[in-house]
């Protein structure tokens, strides 16, 4: 632990970094699978920020509301990810294409 910096602040900064990195990945990577992974990391960054907010209010216990939101968010993110993977697999099967640039 670095002096003067709390754990939750490290979480929040990490979340910000992850957010930027994954947005970069989403736009710069060509392959479908890499793009989908980038959206997963994007989700993780947002959830990490939410979790780090639980500590902010200097209560004895963590604030439960962000945790409830993260649970909901994870459920949504998992189904969106599964849907994206299924689509990518179907595209690959039908056309052999794995990036948006390929001409089938």
């Amino acid at each position: 632990m670095i002096a003067g910096i709390e754990t939750h602040q490290i979480y929040a900064v990490t979340a910000g970094l992850l957010f930027c990195m994954s947005l970069g990945g989403l736009f710069l990577c060509g392959h479908f699978f890499k793009k989908i992974i980038a959206t997963k990391i994007l989700g993780t960054a947002v959830f990490l920020l939410f979790i780090s907010l639980g500590k902010r209010n200097a209560m004895e216990f963590a604030d439960p509301v962000p945790q409830a939101m993260v649970i909901t968010g994870i459920v949504v993110a998992v189904s969106a990810g599964a849907f994206a993977l299924a689509l990518a697999r179907r595209i690959w099967r039908e056309t052999g294409q794995s990036t948006f640039e390929d001409k089938p």
Binding site: L26, K35, T39, L42, A77, A80, R90, I91, E94, F100
Partner: peptide
């Protein structure tokens, strides 16, 4: 296939937007 590719593009944009 064109609809599938367009759909995936839409889905990725939508996920990024809502995140």
């Amino acid at each position: 296939p064109p609809a599938l590719v367009a759909g995936l593009r839409y889905l990725l944009a939508a996920i990024a937007g809502s995140m």
